[in-house]
Simulated scan of single mutants.
Amino acid sequence: MPNSILLRPAPRARLVVLGLAVALTVSGCAQLKGRQGYVVDPLLTEAITPGVDNRESVEKTLGRPTFVGQFSNNEYYYVSRETRQLAFAKPRPVDQQVLRVRFDPAGNVAAVDRTGLELVSRLSPEGDKTPTLGRQRSFFEDIFGNIGAVGAPGAGAPGQ
């Protein structure tokens, strides 16, 4: 009888072990939230109006853009993205807002465009190989394919 009492854990110790097990289980299934880019303030973004604002007033109201247009500096982009991720899975976009402010050559706001999550594309690579155009060559063609081609007429030999 005395041995069975020593082997049985105390009720308090059982609760501690159970609590730790539940905490570890729940923490592994935690959902992580992420925010990237510009922090959108709807009041400020709605205040930008074509024909009234210019480049300087937009920068004072919204701050520096996330990036400027690639081919000309007449477009400002303010990008904001919110993601969610379950434990160790890949993050997936939940919300995205892109505010594009276009300027005319004089530097005045010409247009303000807003887009959201509808333009996000999902790319899924095709396994571990990239499909390419061209002919399919066998192992031996890869190894022995250039024999006789070096110095042959029409193969880029010197003296042609």
Rank of each mutant, 00 (worst) to 15 (best):
I5N: 12
L6V: 12
L7G: 09
L7N: 12
R12I: 06
A13T: 14
A13K: 04
L15R: 08
V17S: 02
V22T: 07
T25N: 11
S27M: 05
G28L: 01
G28H: 09
A30T: 04
L32V: 13
K33N: 15
G34C: 12
Q36K: 15
V39I: 03
V40Q: 05
V40E: 07
L43H: 10
T45L: 07
E46A: 06
T49F: 05
P50Q: 00
P50K: 00
G51D: 01
V52A: 07
N54V: 02
R55L: 02
E56I: 03
E56W: 06
S57P: 10
V58Q: 00
E59R: 11
E59S: 11
P65Q: 10
T66Q: 03
F67A: 07
F67S: 11
V68F: 06
G69D: 00
S72D: 11
N73K: 09
N73H: 14
N74W: 02
R81I: 15
E82W: 14
E82D: 15
Q85D: 07
Q85A: 02
R92V: 09
R92F: 07
V94G: 13
Q96E: 13
Q97Y: 08
Q97N: 13
R100G: 04
R102Q: 08
R102W: 00
D104R: 00
P105F: 02
V109Q: 01
V109Y: 01
V112P: 12
V112E: 03
T115L: 02
G116I: 01
L117Y: 12
E118P: 15
R122W: 08
R122G: 14
L123V: 04
S124H: 13
S124L: 03
S124F: 08
P125V: 07
K129H: 12
T130K: 12
L133Q: 13
R137M: 09
S138W: 00
E141I: 01
E141L: 01
F144A: 08
F144G: 02
I147A: 13
G151W: 08
A152Y: 09
A152F: 06
A152H: 09
P153D: 04
P153E: 02
G156Y: 00
A157L: 03
P158Y: 04
Q160R: 10
